[in-house]
Amino acid sequence: MSSETDDNLSNLVTIVGRGVPSNYEITVDGDIELADADPLEEATVVTDHSAEGAVDTGVMRFQFSGQLANVHVVDWNGVSALESSSTPEVHIDYGASARNESDY
């Protein structure tokens, strides 16, 4: 990836697991890539405009360009964020850099 493209991925979405297996889907109107992790090791599917995977504990970070279009998180039973306290937390930072973020 070129440094020009890296500069365009200045936005950051962070998924924070709560100790319960949960699934997430992220869609943006620009490009998205997994930051600071190997998608194969994390079993994360990343396409040009979306990412999906699972998180139990820890943090998943994605750099993206454009605007966030959609975030959908569900707990291990498929219950959505508004109805379950076990779904992951989602943080969105526009103009942030994943390289400078501290761990949650």
Rank of each mutant, 00 (worst) to 15 (best):
S3Q: 07
S3K: 05
E4H: 09
E4C: 03
E4N: 06
D6R: 13
L9I: 12
L9M: 12
S10L: 04
L12S: 00
L12P: 00
V13W: 08
V13P: 11
V13N: 10
T14Y: 00
T14C: 01
I15H: 07
V16C: 09
V16H: 13
G17T: 04
R18K: 15
V20A: 09
N23Y: 09
Y24M: 05
E25Y: 15
E25D: 06
I26P: 01
T27L: 10
V28Q: 01
V28M: 00
D29S: 09
D31S: 11
D31R: 15
I32T: 01
A35Q: 03
D36H: 11
D36V: 03
A37C: 09
D38I: 08
D38L: 11
P39F: 02
L40W: 08
E41F: 11
E41H: 10
E41T: 07
E41W: 08
E42I: 05
T44C: 06
T44F: 00
V45F: 13
V45C: 01
T47L: 13
T47S: 15
T47K: 11
D48V: 09
D48N: 12
S50T: 13
A51Y: 03
E52I: 07
G53F: 07
G53Q: 08
V55W: 07
T57A: 14
T57E: 15
G58V: 02
M60E: 15
R61E: 08
F62D: 11
F62H: 12
Q63H: 09
Q63A: 15
F64Q: 01
S65M: 06
G66M: 03
G66I: 04
A69E: 14
N70L: 07
N70H: 10
N70I: 00
N70T: 06
V71Y: 00
V71A: 02
V71M: 02
V73R: 04
V74C: 00
V74L: 00
W76G: 15
W76D: 15
N77Y: 08
N77S: 10
N77D: 14
G78K: 02
V79D: 13
S80H: 11
S80F: 09
S80T: 13
S80M: 09
A81G: 01
E83M: 07
S84R: 05
S84N: 03
S85L: 11
S85E: 10
S86W: 07
S86L: 05
T87G: 13
P88R: 02
E89D: 15
V90R: 04
I92A: 06
D93E: 15
D93Y: 14
Y94N: 02
Y94V: 02
G95A: 12
A96G: 03
S97C: 00
S97K: 04
A98E: 04
A98Y: 07
A98F: 07
R99W: 15
N100A: 13
S102C: 05
Y104D: 12
Y104A: 09
Y104C: 03
